[in-house]
Nucleic acid binder design. Structure first.
Lengths: 237, 237
DNA sequence: AAGTGGTCTAGACCACAGC
DNA sequence: CTGTGGTCTAGACCACTTA
C-alpha cells in the first residue's frame, strides 16, 4: 500500500491538524474515530494513530465514552514572556472576567482542615471560579470557607461584587493574606478540562491563606491554578 | 481477557522498565520485539505499545532493521509530592550546597541588556550554580553582572562565601531585590541535563533584579530554575 | 440501550540493516 | 538472504458516558 512515501497516518494527521487549527473552535466536538476512519477510508487503528499524535501534541483531547474535543491551540507558547500576562501576586489581581464554575459543600477533609484549623469533619464550602479575558482562559480559583458562620457567602454571594467586600459588609471581617506557596506541575484532569489545556502544559499553583486581621484566625483558603503559557506571577518587595 | 485491571501493555511496560533500569547496561541490545512478544505471550502490537512508552520516555531506542537498545541515562523519575522543600522567595534561601557549574563572559544580548540597562554590546558575565542537598539536585541559578566594574567578582569570587557580602566588601554596594517574576514551563535541554530531570518535568523559573540600594541602579540579574518536583516557593506578606 | 474511546488479537506486507 | 522494526487491515470485546 505504500511506496517509500509518507505513512498514511501522518498524512491524515496533517489534514486533521489543519482542520483543527483553522476550521474548528476550541472546545468543539469532533467526529468520532469510527466516522473519521470511514471518511479517510482507513482502519480505525490507523486513524487512531493519527489522533494519538494530535493528542500527544496537545491539540485535541479524548474523553472516554464521549468523543474527541478541540483544545485551545498552544499558539502563544512563546519562548519569551512578552505576550504573557502578569498577575500581581500580592493583590492577586488578574485582569479578567470571573465566572462561577461550581460551588459545593463538603466536610473539610485532609488538606483544608489543617489550613482552616478545624476538624476534618467540619462542614466547609467551596466557590470555584474560572478567570478569563475575552475568550482566553487564564486561571481557576477555588475559595474554601468553613460553612458554620459563613453560609451567607455560599447562598447569597453573587459574582458581581468583590468577595472580600461582601465579607467585610456582612461579617465585619477584614481579611489579610499572610503567605502564599507557589508550585508547578501537571494539571489534574478536571483543571486541564476547565482551563482547556493539554495535560502536558504545566500549571502554576498558588495556595494562600487569608486571616481575619483582628483575631488572626484563618478564614479563607484559596487555591489558584494558572495556565503557565499565559500567566506569570510577579512579586514586589 | 481483561478484568477491570491494569492494561496488559502497562504491566509489560513496568516489567521491561525495571529490567532496563536495573539489569541492563547502557548501549546493550535487547531482545527483539517478536521475542519479547513471545516471552510475554502477547501479540506483537501489545508488546509494541509497551515499548512505545519506554521509547517515549527516553529509556530505550529503536533502530530500524537492527533492534532495541538501552539508552544511557537512567534518570530517576521521582514523584516526590509531599517531600518537597520550600524555598523562601523573599530571601531566596535554598538550604543546600552551591556548586559552581560554569562561568563565562559575553555581550549582554537581548534579555539581559534591557534588564541591566546597558547596550546589547556591553560585556557582561555570568556565574552559574547548581544547588543541591546531598545527592539531590534542586535548582540552577544564573547570576548576570556587567563586566565593567565588577570583573573582580568574575575572577576572584569563590563559592565559599556570600556573593552579596563579597560585593559589599569590595564595592561598598548594598543590594536590594526589587521584584521577582515567577513562571513555569518545560526546561531547556541544558537545564534538564544539569537538573537531571526529564524534559517532561516542569521547572519553576524566578527572574529577579537586584539594585544598588543607594543609587537605585540595577546591578545583578538572577535567573533561577527549580525542579518542580522538589521545590515550592513561599512568599510572606 | 447506543455510541464512544481503550485494549487486544491475528495476520500481512513493507523498508531497512547486516551477513 | 534473514531478521529487524514500521505500517496497515480486520474484527472483537471492554469500560465508560449519556440519554
Amino acid at each position: 500500500m505504500l511506496t517509500t512515501e509518507e505513512p498514511l497516518y501522518l498524512k491524515i494527521r496533517r489534514i486533521l491538524e489543519h482542520e483543527v487549527r483553522n476550521h474548528l473552535q476550541a472546545g468543539q466536538k469532533m467526529d468520532s474515530e469510527s466516522r473519521l476512519a470511514e471518511r479517510f477510508n482507513v482502519n480505525r487503528h490507523t486513524l487512531r494513530r493519527a489522533v494519538d499524535s494530535l493528542v500527544q501534541e496537545g491539540l485535541i483531547e479524548r474523553r472516554r465514552g464521549v468523543g474527541l474535543f478541540v483544545l485551545d491551540p498552544p499558539f502563544d507558547y512563546p519562548l519569551e514572556a512578552d505576550t504573557r500576562l502578569t498577575a500581581n501576586l500580592a493583590h492577586m489581581r488578574t485582569r479578567g472576567q470571573r465566572e462561577l464554575l461550581r460551588k459545593f459543600s463538603a466536610p473539610a477533609g485532609s488538606p483544608v482542615s489543617e489550613i482552616l484549623q478545624v476538624s476534618p469533619e467540619t462542614q466547609t464550602f467551596c466557590l470555584e471560579y474560572l478567570i478569563r479575558t475575552e475568550k482566553k482562559t487564564l486561571s481557576l480559583a477555588s475559595h474554601y470557607f468553613v460553612y458554620k458562620p459563613f453560609e451567607k457567602i455560599f447562598h447569597e454571594f453573587d459574582k458581581s461584587g468583590s468577595l472580600h467586600a461582601f465579607i467585610k459588609k456582612h461579617y465585619g471581617l477584614q481579611l489579610k493574606r499572610v503567605s502564599s506557596v507557589i508550585s508547578a506541575g501537571a494539571p489534574n484532569p478536571d483543571d486541564a478540562t476547565f482551563l482547556r489545556i493539554p495535560k502536558t502544559l504545566p500549571v502554576l499553583t498558588v495556595r494562600s491563606v487569608n486571616i481575619d486581621k483582628a483575631t488572626g484566625k484563618p478564614v479563607e483558603y484559596v487555591r489558584s491554578r494558572f495556565r503557565s503559557d499565559r500567566i506569570e506571577l510577579s512579586v514586589k518587595f
